[in-house]
Design a protein around this nucleic acid. Structure first.
Lengths: 154, 154
DNA sequence: CTTGAAAAGAGCGGCCA
DNA sequence: TGGCCGCTCTTTTCAAG
């Protein structure tokens, strides 16, 4: 992982449609070694996948909700069952176990309030929860999958 | 936007390396009409971009933080300046204006606590804030960019 | 790492139903 | 619309410097 690799990753995490020739040119290499680097970065797991990002509005998915959950119970059985069920819900785009007062944080994308109510009932039916707080997004000011690749190691 | 278009979008939002031939086969079309549909979906803005997703751990980005912000001031000038500065920070992957008690929610990806402290100081220097609460992620149970495409319209 | 090149495959477009 | 058939460009692999 040198600077060139980081540059390649940064290019591809912003636009994966770039041809190898273009990437090679921008990092100052010829195609063959550039292609080999990309292969290596994929094999080593730096690149996990290449995906198409969709416009939620266009699909009628106008409501993003952040759900804070306090669990109450903390047994391994409970946690495993809860994690499996929630992760399987397609409306949940992000599911994080947290430190501090909130045990879990969910990012949920649905059509509208009515749709969220449907999801909410499904969620509380999945496992007993001590406390659930929903916070609703008004405006998405920034959303990116691109990471700030640090210069040091990696 | 019929069922076939939705199926195409769903395939590509999970794996954008699929060739047109493969997508075509899976949705039960031949290449040409499938290719035309994908072109149309891109032109109409259903597909916003194709990106490579990177592994944050591999890059030494081990800490994800959700930052809740209470603004205090709400003038247009303040908001515009604040929004522009925060959106420009590469550590911020998501920046949302919220309804309710929290005014803004940030998703921040950094190396570690030390690195977060550096970011935090940068953040509070960007604009006067009434209240800032940081919640730290312990474990990423699920993370996907794939949306639950609804059947109706879109 | 570079150049050069060749085989395989994918994207792209025209034309017909 | 969808399907068939080419033309081009890219990806992928190889040899040699």
């Amino acid at each position: 992982m040198d600077g060139i690799d980081r540059k390649i990753l940064d290019l591809l995490q912003h636009d994966a449609t770039l041809s190898i020739a273009e990437v090679a040119q921008r990092v100052g290499l010829s195609q063959t070694p550039c292609w080999k680097r990309i292969q290596r970065l994929e094999t080593l797991g730096y690149i996990t996948s290449r995906v198409a990002l969709l416009n939620p509005e266009k699909l009628g998915l106008g409501l993003t909700v952040f759900v804070s959950i306090e669990a109450g119970e903390h047994s391994k059985e409970w946690l495993d069952a809860f994690a499996a069920r929630v992760a399987a819900m397609p409306e949940v785009t992000e599911f994080t176990r947290m430190a501090g007062d909130v045990d879990y944080l969910l990012r949920v994308v649905v059509r509208d309030m009515r749709d969220y109510d449907r999801f909410y009932k499904k969620l509380i039916a999945a496992a007993p929860l001590k406390n659930v707080t929903s916070r609703f997004a008004m405006e998405q000011i920034k959303f990116t999958t691109a990471l700030a690749i640090p210069p040091g190691d990696g």
